[in-house]
Amino acid sequence: MTAFLQNCFAGLSLGSTYALVALGFVVIFKSTGVINFAQGGLLALGAYLGYTFSNNLAVAFGVAVLLCCASAALVGATFERIVLRRMVGQPPFAVIMITIGLLFILEPMITAIWGFDQKQITNPWNIRTVEAGGLVFGVRDLWTIGLTAAVVAAFFVFFRYSSLGLAMRVTAFDPEAALAQGISARRVYATSWAIAAALAALAGILMAAGPGGLTPSIGFIALAAFPAMILGGMDSPAGAVLGGLVIGLAEALTRGYQDELFSWAGSNVSVIVPYLLMIVILLIRPYGLLGTKEVRRV
């Protein structure tokens, strides 16, 4: 039982990171109808900027987190302004490919600047743990879960009550009607890219503070967040959070019971569990757990 709960805790921590990234996907998808494959690049960029702020410039860790989110947001908004704005009205294929192209430009740039070797971000948590009821909780994991909960709550408040949040919801619902009401679609698009990039950067620096450290392959975690988004429903922010947690739990549990239950399926099954789950959910409920069913009119 203890082992099970311990695995669940690890899953929640991992799932929180997925939830942050998936939330970023949903924000962009809802307002602009684009799936942003470059999220992984933004995540890695955010994490490495956090490293520079925290280690090279010796800024306090909390400030470094804020700074890296802000600079990633700036990069995201710039992407939108320079590249994606030109692609408005193009078929989804072209737009998806543009974001994939951006991902493949960002990744080598990051290795060119920061190199391939593993780095450790100076952070106040390190490998400290607290014990409660026979379970060992990593301080970083607790912070990850807590921060994610806080950010998600703030996001929902912003979306629900602020005028910009309202503008974003309206634009997602009906862009033309929103324009007719004098809502600036440009501002909405730029904001959603900025929010998504900031969320990705937060996820990145939280991951990088963990035991895995900071390596260029950190961006791959964003690819595993795609299944989270599909699982929850592509247009549902709440679904993204739910999907992220479910995927994180499934992955951590598979990893925990790899030797006992999944040895027949080869080593490291946990890596592909998100994708297998996604395929299952697509066959049963193609629009996800909380997504809206797509209506096709002829």
Binding site: I98, I100, G101, L102, I105, E107, P108
Partner: peptide, 9 residues
């Protein structure tokens, strides 16, 4: 990798 990305964009 960067060139592929750049060419696509």
């Amino acid at each position: 990798q960067a060139l592929f990305g750049l060419l696509i964009v």
